[in-house]
Amino acid sequence: MMLSRVLSNLFSRPATRPFPKTSREPVEGYRGAVEFSQEECVFCGACALRCPANAIEVDRPAKTLKFDLFKCIHCACCAEACKRGCVQLRSAYHPPVYQKPEFEFSGAPVLAAEASPATE
């Protein structure tokens, strides 16, 4: 019994994934890195409203979006809330950092005549 286990463990492949040498293929649909596409965003604030951790701040008049990676809980609520699909969760994970990254972008101010809300 024990001998058979020893032999089978001796000749089977190691269970360990040699992580830094070969990194694993990210699984499809993994809720990893949050990415915003700046061009598409209309600053409707739907993502900020739905975020359970208040990690996203949207200022609608000023057209700015602030994302706090450190508060993010990777629940993908923002991606579900965004009707234009400009928040996506990529299947790779966020790498560790030495300093808090600042993530912020703003849109060009739109003339009042054009400012018809595309998504509410």
């Binding site: 269970a15 699984v27 649909g29 993994y30 809720r31 809980i73 990777h74 629940c75 993908a76």
Partner: peptide, 22 residues
């Protein structure tokens, strides 16, 4: 725990996260 990692892989593949599957 090695066996458990197989279960964690199932979560990762079906739910998109290892621990808190949401």
């Amino acid at each position: 725990w090695r066996n458990r990692e197989r279960l964690m892989d199932i979560f990762e593949r079906t739910a998109g996260s290892r621990v808190i599957i949401s």
